[in-house]
């Protein structure tokens, strides 16, 4: 099979269905996994959560015709650069490493990273406190980068989704997990998370943990980046962001 044939087959197949999808739609990539309270699939097959509402609000404010496109988190950046999606709004932190490959909008939320562990366990969110313990983290996250940098004396187990790490924390296969504070607060509030509690935030390292969560766009897609920035600015200014936040959380999760 020559490259040309592959291309030709792909092109024909792709153009067959191209009629259905409009070219001016903006595909917003989200992670195809339950990540409550930000984004999760409910039993009727629709995506719900704080971030999903924010995406809707930003797109409405920026007058973009957005479609949610679930993609595997581990491959979400290749999907963006490979043009399967146009933007990522999946609680992705703005970091130096990622900025080498993709662009980001301004942040739309900002929360610390925390360590959650079994209530009975005496664990401090420090390299010493976690030495010799098994830490579960999600692949391709700031938490993976952080754990690999700081928790060198711990065994690090890499999961495809944060939910799998939570499940294994519940099962007792791992001692602790590092993740976003809001997502962890949600998890320890559920029945299966009742085993565990948040042991505290890890020491901040802005070069790894980044400066808040933004919408990622392809390098050079300045038009979409500007539109998303405008949309985020609008919902921050007109109180929509605050109103959505109030429906989910007690306190604001946005800081300048």
């Amino acid at each position: 099979m020559t490259l040309k044939t592959i291309l030709a087959t792909g092109l024909t197949l792709a153009t067959v269905t191209a009629g259905a999808a409009q070219a001016d739609q903006v595909k917003i990539g989200i992670a195809a996994e339950p990540y409550p309270p930000f984004a999760s699939l409910d039993s009727s097959g629709t995506w719900v959560g704080w971030e999903v509402e924010v995406i809707d609000a930003v797109c409405a404010a920026a007058k973009l015709d957005c479609v949610l496109t679930p993609v595997a988190w581990d491959g979400i950046i290749p999907s963006l650069t490979g043009q399967q999606i146009d933007a990522i709004m999946a609680s992705m932190s703005i970091t130096e490493e990622r900025l080498k490959t993709i662009d980001f909008s301004n942040p739309y939320y900002n929360t610390p990273a925390v360590i959650a562990a079994d209530k009975a366990m005496d664990i401090a969110p420090t390299p010493e406190g976690l030495a010799g313990k098994i830490i579960g983290i999600q692949a391709s996250t700031i938490h993976q980068a952080y754990a690999q940098e700081y928790f060198k004396d711990s065994e690090i187990r890499v999961y495809q989704t944060q939910d799998e790490a939570n499940q294994d924390l519940f099962a007792g296969r791992i001692d602790a997990t590092q993740a976003d504070s809001i997502a962890m607060a949600d998890f320890v509030g559920t029945e299966s998370g009742s085993c565990c509690e948040i042991k505290g935030a890890v020491a901040n390292d802005i070069s790894i943990l980044g400066r808040g969560v933004g919408a990622a766009t392809r390098k050079g897609d300045a038009e979409l980046q500007a539109a998303l920035n405008a949309g985020i600015a609008t919902i921050l200014a007109d109180g929509t962001h605050e109103a959505i936040t109030a429906r989910y959380f007690n306190a604001s999760i946005y800081s300048e």
Partner: peptide, 26 residues
């Protein structure tokens, strides 16, 4: 999945078709 769709988009860009929408099913 990654290389293929990327190549298709590049090829269709070269041929002047612009971006091709590829649904997950396709």
């Amino acid at each position: 999945y990654y290389v293929g769709t990327d190549l298709i988009n590049k090829a269709s860009g070269l041929l002047g078709y612009g971006r091709v929408e590829i649904s997950g099913v396709v």
